[in-house]
């Protein structure tokens, strides 16, 4: 235990990045999910088809593959783009690659959640808006989206907890979040057991705190209705 103690601030930095990565990706995912869900239920065939393809693609792709694909893929694309200009590019920033990968992947999960809720969205609320002459866009913005966000809050909260754990995979492309810092500390102290136990504990704390915040949020939400 005393061997790993000096690394504690390094560890906390990793934990902060874990939280930060998810906190940054999640709103993007939710936004993407909303758009895709609206496309999925839209009367436009191409839009619905594109949404269904996106949802089914990421329903099947393991997150670890998406992270690697975005990381290596963007590297190759960037290099190809830069080649004609003779510019040397240092490669994709791993944190940004992870951010993009998580956002896209979880965007599809969020889309499924929103789509399910849209399926049971009371038609009367929409019709009440139509009846007073609101436009479809106004109804979406002022009525559907707020109510959807409210009903989806528990599912979205769970999704955030999933994202916190999945974000550990960002360590595999070199993002120095909690898992990565743990591996580094485990390597230099030669105490992998202790280090990974501590990391597990940290993840549990992060999850518990997030879960608690989520619970308070849900309660507050319920009160406000």
């Amino acid at each position: 235990m005393e061997v790993v103690a000096p690394y504690f601030s390094f560890w906390l930095k990793g934990a902060a990045l874990t939280l930060g990565l998810s906190a940054a990706s999640f709103p993007i995912s939710a936004f993407l999910g909303l758009i895709v869900a609206f496309a999925a239920v839209s009367p436009s065939r191409p839009a619905a088809l594109a949404a269904a393809m996106y949802i089914n693609l990421f329903r099947g792709l393991p997150e670890i593959i998406v992270i690697f694909l975005i990381f290596y893929g963007s590297n190759i694309v960037l290099t190809m783009l830069a080649q004609p200009f003779g510019i040397q590019i240092g490669g994709t920033n791993p944190a940004i690659a992870a951010l993009i990968a998580l956002s896209i992947q979880f965007g599809s999960y969020a889309a499924v959640i929103f789509k399910d809720w849209m399926g049971v969205f009371p038609r009367g609320y929409t019709e009440a808006g139509l009846a007073i002459g609101m436009t479809r866009l106004q109804i979406r913005r002022r009525i559907v989206v707020p109510l959807l966000l409210r009903s989806a809050t528990p599912a979205l909260g769970n999704l955030f907890l999933v994202m916190l754990k999945i974000s550990a995979l960002a360590s595999l492309i070199g993002v120095e979040e909690l898992s990565r810092t743990t591996s580094i500390i485990a390597g230099s102290t030669r105490e992998p057991l202790v280090c990974y136990l501590i990391a597990a504990g940290m993840y549990l704390v992060i999850s518990a705190v997030s879960g608690f915040v989520q619970h308070r949020f849900e309660v507050a939400m319920e009160r406000s209705i």
């Binding site: 995979l169 360590s171 743990t182 591996s183 057991l193 990974y196 136990l197 990391a199 993840y203 549990l204």
Partner: peptide, 10 residues
């Protein structure tokens, strides 16, 4: 609560 990755490493 613990990521699968950490469990595997552990």
């Amino acid at each position: 609560g613990v990521p699968l990755l950490i469990l595997l490493y552990l």
